[in-house]
Nucleic acid binder design. Structure first.
Length: 823
RNA sequence: GCCGAAGUGGCGGAAUGGCAGACGCGGCGGAUUCAAAAUCCGCUGUCCGAGAGGGCGUGUCGGUUCGAUCCCGACCUUCGGCACCA
């Protein structure tokens, strides 16, 4: 008897089940007492104009499988999605076309949402959030006020890349050879009042607490970025009573080898110590350096430059007279902006000394013997034994460091000191499409003036006043023209009616900078807890119910910035008592980049971009989801192969036919039954371990087997459909319904397995002679060594290789192998 | 330069001390078809051999081990991050 089995038609079933999930509110996150919880979070996207690319669904499918699997295991799941919707592209588009960024953003969000929904992700859409929404901006500003009141937000005059022609500040990456990347206009370094966040206050904790989170190599990147180093600060007297020069060094043990000093060109002491003879050259050099961006200044492999100031300092250890130079390789913002140069033991100092004919003195010897440093080929930077160093002589490097610091402290000439590469975070942008700062300043009107909108006035930036919480959110003014202005105050400075206001008869001016895009993404995982709460950013109950984030999945490009910034905010909120964990993201995974079919990065210009909409149209969302999981390990870079999707489609076609054709209650044969139990175990284990590629493979193997023994019993089809459900939820729901269920498989319990059936009673073992497989033998699982010997005693293939030889060793590893060593 | 990750068939990958190449793509052969597509069945690392079978094989060279894709050392290549941070 044959039955008519319907064909698998993703275009028909996918919208049907998406509508059903929505109607049943199947994925709304609810916390039930006594149940386990799982907060599984995707890095929310910036809704760009080009829509989703196939890279997005990679991480999103992984987290979706985890979320769906957890629900089937009766775990409460929080799996939300939102939009990181402030940002430059919408603003650039607004500048070109006059379209308000909010309009562009709304349109792009609609596209992204349609695409994400078409892939069947089980997000709790009732928690959807948008960083540009006033209800969200309010709390971003509220957190800023918390940072401000804790002294973590401050203003500073900081040099920025200002391009007068474009009327904007540029990032370092946007400046090439002193000109703007776009247009080639000149860029000047100019100090500008900026908001800074004191992330350096958290440098130690940000570095140390990495030890307690389950993160990949990203930890090392952050550690490197924070760049903690331990050393000492040492004061050198400048000759002629012109003060003291403080330096930072990680090698105080080499103090006796310091033969000259170098200070940063912008160091405040330079003007005071420079002699009249040297002044013209020094000032010319300072001007030259000032015009360079950080990028140029630190450009690789260039020869050292520098100028002698004419001044000398005294080496506090050796008493030697040290000429003081300025050079751009010494950075004004790191350490003290000045160094002692030990050319025999620092490669940069070595190169500089060679360049300008300065002397070298060996004070660390690799072997304890004295060498002549003047014929070194390179600096000796390793550890060794102190020489020519007075009281340090004979000490190893570590001991010498400690002894020297002890002496410096005793003499009041120095102290132990820790430094970081991490700098405070430049937090303001001269842009429109960002969160306004909830800060305003008093305005001083010129005498006789009455209105700062028309009259001369001074804004007292030195007296920032936080906005009262009840006035939040402070929303952006409506503008027609989004161009950056001709002054670096930004486009908001033109909205005079917004910027200036009167209170109690006095005039005030609002801050016209806006926050960077990072602001909204620093805390969105907290707002997901309680997204519509009008009175609090999140309630204590919601926090306790779901935090911390159990798994966070997103691109490695955010390894340092976003993930460091968010950790910083979280720790500040922890100190302020608003959160009860000091790390927000317990486990982190980066999905690997998906390359184009040609192995190159997907890019419009390379014509290798794959649009998920097209894949869905051709094979359905389930095929796309499964294929992205089947490509390889989640965290690995992998090239797209359109043909690979076809293979997945064939698998689903076959699985559909096998399950839709299931009938009866007959028993499976023993081998198939064992395979079923093994597969249930493997798929579950693989999901938890994020090994989705091998889970899909296991389901393929099972599907192929079931196809061979079809028609399969209904109960078997039910188990298979449940395994498939987290990966390919639409086809699973359709099959579940065909198997006679009125409820959703998305809410059905995950199948169990019998551990006894996941191992075979009879095991085939390879029989090796001297490590080479010569035969095979089947033994019961619990066979003893004697059984194994007996089993191969008459094996002709084995005997052919052992004949006439002496047995040296007999190895039997139960369940694994038999190895006979002969000679 | 420094730090990190990775090198396995024609391709994506599996196996992480015990039969290398599961699963999928591609390819080859067959069934079905008037024919093709789809589907189904079989084969598919490489060399020698008619075959049975055997040799070789996980970037390279060494080491540890009865046994190494897996652990250790050195090197090569690719990718990612940092890059004058004293």
């Amino acid at each position: 008897m044959t039955r008519e089995i319907p064909r698998y038609d993703p275009a028909a079933i996918e919208p049907k089940w998406q509508a059903r999930w929505e109607a049943e509110r199947a994925f709304v996150a609810e916390r039930r007492p006594g149940k386990k919880k799982l907060y599984v979070l995707d890095m929310f996207p910036y809704p760009s104009g080009s829509g989703l690319h196939v890279g997005h669904p990679e991480g999103y499918t992984a987290t979706d499988i985890l979320a769906r699997h957890a629900r089937m295991n009766d775990v409460d799941v929080l799996h939300p999605m939102g939009w990181d919707a402030f940002g430059l592209p919408a603003e650039q588009y607004a500048i070109q076309t006059g379209t308000h960024p909010a309009v562009t953003t709304a349109k792009n969000v609609a596209t992204f949402k349609r695409q994400l929904k078409s892939l069947g992700f089980s997000y709790d859409w009732s928690r959807e959030l948008d960083t540009t929404d006033p209800g969200y901006v309010k709390w971003t500003q509220w957190i800023f006020l918390r940072l401000f009141e804790r002294g973590l937000a401050y203003q500073a005059e900081t040099p920025v890349n200002w391009c007068p022609a474009l009327g904007t500040v540029l990032a370092n990456e946007e400046v090439i050879d002193g000109k703007s990347e776009r247009g080639g206009h000149p860029v000047v370094r100019r100090p500008l009042r900026q908001w800074m966040l004191r992330i350096t206050a958290y440098a130690d904790r940000l570095a140390d607490d990495l030890a307690r989170v389950d993160w990949p190599e990203t930890k090392l990147k952050q550690e490197q970025w924070i760049g903690r180093s331990e050393g000492a600060e040492i004061d050198f007297d400048v000759e002629g009573g012109r003060g003291a020069l403080r330096v930072y060094t990680t090698r105080p043990d080499t103090l006796f080898g310091a033969t000259y000093m170098v200070v940063a060109p912008e160091h405040p002491l330079v003007g005071g110590i420079t002699t009249d003879d040297a002044r013209p050259a020094v000032e010319a050099y300072q001007r030259e350096v000032a015009s360079k961006s950080d990028m140029e200044r630190t450009a690789l492999a260039k020869t050292k430059t520098g100028v002698f100031t004419g001044a000398y300092a005294t080496n506090p250890a050796s008493g030697a007279r040290l000429p003081i130079w300025i050079a751009d390789f010494v950075l004004g913002h790191y350490g003290t902006g000045a160094i002692m140069s030990v050319p025999a033991h620092d490669q940069r100092d070595f190169e500089f000394a060679r360049q300008f004919g300065l002397p070298l003195v060996e004070v660390v010897s690799p072997d304890g013997a004295l060498h002549d440093a003047s014929n070194f080929d390179a600096a000796f930077t390793g550890d060794g034994v102190a020489v020519r160093s007075g009281h340090l002589d004979g000490l190893g490097t570590d001991a010498a460091k400690a002894a020297m610091i002890e002496r410096l402290v005793a003499d009041g000439r120095g102290a132990r000191k820790v430094n970081y590469k991490l700098r405070d975070w430049l937090f303001s942008r001269q842009r429109y499409w960002g969160e306004p700062f909830p800060i305003y300043f008093p305005v001083e009107l010129a005498s006789g003036a009455s209105d700062p909108r028309t009259d001369a006035h001074v804004v007292r930036y030195d007296q920032p006043i936080p906005l009262d919480e009840r006035e939040l959110p402070l929303l952006l003014p409506e503008l027609d023209d989004f161009k950056p202005g001709d002054d670096p105050a930004g486009p908001l400075a033109r909205a005079k009616d917004w910027r200036y206001f009167q209170r109690d008869g006095r005039w005030f001016a609002r801050e016209t900078n806006t926050m960077p895009q990072w602001a909204g993404s620093c805390w969105y995982y907290l707002r997901f807890l309680d997204p519509t709460n009008p009175d609090e950013a999140w309630s204590r109950e919601a926090y306790d119910a779901w935090m911390p984030v159990d798994l966070y999945v997103g691109g490695a490009e955010h390894a340092v910035l976003h993930l460091l910034y968010a950790r910083f905010w979280h720790k500040a909120l922890f100190d302020a008592g608003y959160v009860t964990h000091d790390e927000p993201f317990h486990r982190l995974v980066h999905q690997g980049l998906i390359l184009g079919e040609n192995g190159q990065k997907m890019a419009k210009s390379l014509g290798n971009v794959v649009n998920p909409d097209e894949v869905v149209a051709a094979h359905g969302a389930d095929s796309l989801r499964l294929y992205e999981m089947f490509m390889g390990p989640l965290d690995q870079v992998k090239p797209w192969q359109t043909k690979g999707v076809v293979g997945i489609r064939r698998f689903l076609d076959r699985a559909f036919a096998v399950c839709a054709g299931a009938l009866g209650e007959h028993a499976l044969d023993d081998e198939t039954s064992r395979l079923l139990h093994k597969t249930v175990k493997k798929v579950g284990d693989d999901i938890v371990a994020l090994r989705f590629n091998t889970a899909v493979s296991a389901m393929m193997i099972l599907s192929n087997r079931l196809h061979e023994v079809a028609p399969i019993p209904t109960a078997t089809a039910e188990v298979f459909v449940k395994l498939l459900a987290p990966f390919a939820p639409h086809v699973a729901e359709e099959l579940w319904e065909r198997l006679g269920h009125a409820t959703l498989v998305s809410r059905a319990p995950w199948p169990t397995y019998d551990p006894a059936l996941t191992v075979d009673d009879l095991v085939e073992l390879a029989v090796q002679v001297n490590g080479k497989v010569r035969s095979r033998v089947t033994l019961p699982r619990g066979a003893t060594e004697a059984d194994a010997r007996a089993a191969i005693a008459d094996d002709a293939a084995v005997r052919a290789f052992t004949a006439g030889k002496i047995e040296k060793k007999f190895l039997y590893v139960p369940g694994k192998i038999i190895n006979l060593v002969v000679a």
